[in-house]
Computed example of a mutant assay.
Amino acid sequence: MSEEQSETGTGWPQPAVPGRPTGPDPRPGAPDSDEMSPLSPQGEPPGRQSPPDEPDAGDAVTVDLSSVTAPAGAEQTPPTGPAAVARRFTSAGAMIALLLGLLGFTLVVQLRTTSTDPTSAATRQEDLVRIFSDLDSREKRLRQDIEALEESQRQLRSGEQGRQAALQEATRRADELGILAGTLPARGPGLSVRFEAGSKPISAYRVLDAVQELRGAGAEAMQISGGDGAAVRIIASTYFLDGSGGDLVVDGRRLSGPFTITVIGDPTTMATALKIPGGVAASVAGDGGNVIVEDREVADVSALHAPVKLEHARPVS
């Protein structure tokens, strides 16, 4: 094998490549080879600008990405920078202002709610008048009781009249307790309250409402009588039940209508309590009945309640 075959590595001689001619171009009018050299800055033909210098590997390259448009379907990256920060601050400020406004409105409503009394605001004017009248009546009775007790105290301290005053005081207290217990008759100014049935019979709870209203207005003694004249004393333990045919059962005794309650107390205060709007008279009228209230200068409560026989309690001397 020859040296040429060894140099190519294939065993075949390497074909000869025609070399580039050197020297001036023999063609007439041809430009000088130095002028056509790409390394010569003067070799550029007229009208052609040289390309911009390429940056070196070590120089920093700045690219403006603001004008680059993302392709369709690609995810949009949220904007960053001062504009985005200002937008976030603007949204947060609006939310904080809204929350502060709601908090202020809630505080104002709460203050207005707590500054007013809901019970008094919801009470009707007629009910307030009745409550004030009852309070005035109770105040007068309490003042009278205070004066009577103070007078009894002065008499008991008077020395030789003390024993007689104590006996009189004990007798008076026994009479009062007897009237309240229904074991003694009573007489004094008061009212006569008559219940007349209409399309519906007079129910037991209507009569009970009347008794409660009279007690609240200062009634001291009461009795209820039926159409046949039978009467039952009304005390703290008296109960009322509906009977057959429109009758009324009071403490186990049957009464037929119409029913009449005789009560001793302040006539004006008790009449006002019965005639308030939405009260006993209005309720009975709503059922088709009627309530007739008459003043009595002297009302007699003569029905008596049998005293309860005590089995375990004994008086202490």
Rank of each mutant, 00 (worst) to 15 (best):
P51T: 12
E35T: 13
S37D: 15
G47V: 04
Q49P: 10
E75G: 13
S33I: 11
R27K: 10
A83H: 11
G58S: 11
V85A: 08
S37A: 15
L39W: 08
Q49G: 12
G29K: 13
Q76N: 08
M36S: 07
P28K: 09
G81I: 00
P55I: 02
A30Y: 13
P31I: 07
P51C: 12
P78R: 02
A57V: 04
P28F: 05
G81M: 03
Q42T: 04
Q42V: 10
S67Y: 04
E75K: 14
D56R: 06
P78G: 00
Q42N: 10
T77Y: 01
S50C: 07
V61K: 07
P45M: 04
A57S: 04
A74S: 10
T77Q: 10
P78N: 02
T62D: 12
G73S: 06
G58M: 08
T22L: 07
V63F: 04
P38F: 11
D53S: 15
T77M: 05
R20G: 08
G23L: 14
T80H: 01
A72K: 05
A84P: 01
D53Q: 15
L65Y: 01
E44C: 10
V61I: 12
S40R: 09
T77W: 00
P78V: 00
E54V: 14
S67A: 10
D32V: 01
P24D: 10
T62H: 14
P79V: 09
A70C: 01
G47C: 01
L65H: 12
S40Y: 06
P46Q: 05
P51D: 14
T69C: 03
T69N: 02
G29Q: 14
S40W: 06
A57H: 03
P82G: 02
A86R: 03
R20S: 14
G58I: 06
T77F: 14
V85W: 03
D32H: 11
G29L: 13
V85H: 05
P28W: 09
P82M: 02
D32N: 12
G29C: 09
A84R: 09
A57Q: 06
Q76T: 13
Q42W: 06
E54R: 12
E54T: 15
P82I: 04
G58Y: 12
D25T: 05
T69K: 07
P21L: 03
P52H: 04
A72S: 02
G19K: 04
P78Y: 05
L65A: 07
D53W: 14
A30D: 12
Q76R: 13
D64N: 05
Q49W: 06
A84E: 07
V68G: 01
Q42P: 01
G19W: 02
P38Y: 09
L39T: 13
P82E: 15
G43E: 01
G29F: 13
Q42I: 08
A57R: 04
G29W: 08
D34G: 12
V68P: 00
P24Y: 04
R27Y: 12
Q49R: 11
R87S: 04
G73N: 08
A30P: 15
P78A: 00
P82H: 06
D25M: 02
G43T: 01
G23P: 01
R48P: 00
D34P: 01
P45W: 08
V61L: 10
